[in-house]
Write a protein that binds this DNA or RNA. Structure first.
Lengths: 246, 246
DNA sequence: CCCTTTCCTTAACCGGACCTTAACCCTGCG
DNA sequence: CGCAGGGTTAAGGTCCGGTTAAGGAAAGGG
């Protein structure tokens, strides 16, 4: 599911665009001025921002600039009636990812939103990271080209993580990827992550799933691969905590 | 440095584009047909591929499709004379990231290539001071390009200080940066600053955090770096105060 | 139709990272 | 000397992620 923020003060056009995007199963938020937009972008993670340039209170270019200064690299599509070259260049220079001139065809906007949101994940048929590869069509995960078995949930998690290409995926988005709107209230996510990790270790994958402070998770290459054979349970590591047994 | 592959069979236009891109310090490779392009893309990592659709031997759409099937997510800009909507949509559907209609302005092509290449390399904004750099997007602090670990609060402090570029940051603003409206009433700030300093020293950073009279704090370059090895606690400095032990 | 397997959920627990707090130390200054 | 501002240290507590095991639902095979 793609989350879009539309920033457009022409309410009629805005409604139009939103209707159209929601037909494509995108979730749309809307801001009618630059200040509101900035605050929304800073607070919530969007997949794409569709940003008009002519805005009350703070123009689109400035919004874009400020967002980039914050180190936020959310994809931004500029939307404007000006099609002069220098306008476009200015837009790109402020950190825009795309620039669409009004009037435009709705399907083109949709296509460009998709391209930015899913860039390199929607069309890509295979995800790779380290010695792990995930075939999108067949839902098969392989390590060194040897297929391994994952539970459906573990697979979904891995897919979502791999699509981020090593970037951090907020916890909330992970929940969303697996359960959609209504996530279980328990620590199910932790358990599934644990299972996924266990599977990856057993398969000798060269990647691991790392937790990032209070934000989310990401996949990384394992720092070291001591080439010793790991017989999966041979070492008396202190994995066991506080249990007297064992 | 950005590496671009240009796939274009019109040699005149190709030369033109290459000249233009190289003016921008990009390194250009060139292929004149689809098969050659595919093989190059599979062999070398490019930052961006500029791909004409009308090509001998294998058309651009097919090239794009095959690239994506391989799990290769190199950004691709489609280049074509057809500006019909359905052509564009087809391009995006095959996995293109952008679509530019001929004739186009060279600066716009350059801008779009930059946009795609930068996003890819996550070349987001960075703060630097001495040998310390702070990547705004990923919240990673590095010393000599080696990432170091900071607690969230220490990170926030460092970020706020670095944003001042060596100028003094009033104590009150620092409090605000970390806790917002309601700061703790204790000396928490002092403790966090202390931890930050400790981390910086351990990481061999060339900067330090200085206190300024009754006003605030700032970062400065360390005056001297006696190149002796610091084993973190080797020198019998009078760090210890008034304690009988030791 | 029942049994087995697989998988998901839930809860309890551990441990570490982190934040807060408070006490103490130093130096400089009136 | 006392006070103020900054620096240092250690203790306590909370929060969060990781681990484990048990119970139940769904799927599949006999």
């Amino acid at each position: 599911m793609i989350r879009v923020l539309l920033v457009e003060d022409d309410m009629g056009l805005a409604g139009n665009i939103i209707d159209y995007l929601e037909l494509e199963d995108m979730v749309c938020d809307h801001a009618a001025n630059g200040v509101a937009a900035l605050s929304l972008i800073q607070k919530h993670p969007f997949d794409v921002v569709v940003l008009d340039i002519n805005l009350p209170r703070l123009d689109g270019l400035s919004v874009c600039e400020r967002v980039r200064e914050d180190g936020n690299d959310t994809p931004i599509i500029m939307l404007t009636a000006r099609d002069q070259l220098e306008n476009k260049l200015e837009g790109f220079q402020k950190g825009a990812d795309d620039y669409l001139v009004k009037p435009f065809d709705m399907p083109e906007l949709v296509a460009r939103v998709f391209a930015l949101a899913y860039r390199r994940s929607s069309q890509v048929k295979k995800l790779r990271f380290g010695n792990v590869s995930l075939a999108m069509g067949s839902d098969v995960v392989s390590v060194e080209n040897v297929p391994i078995k994952l539970s459906p949930t573990a697979f979904t998690l891995l897919k979502a993580l791999l699509q981020q290409q090593g970037k951090v995926l907020p916890r909330e988005r992970l929940l969303d990827a697996v359960w959609g709107e209504d996530a279980p209230e328990s620590n199910a996510l932790k358990v599934h992550l644990h299972n996924l990790r266990k599977s990856l270790v057993q398969a000798n994958a060269s990647i691991e799933v790392k937790a990032v402070a209070g934000t989310g998770f990401c996949v990384t290459l394992k720092p070291e691969q001591s080439s010793s054979v790991q017989s999966t349970s041979a070492e008396p590591k202190s994995t066991n905590k506080g249990n007297d047994q064992w």
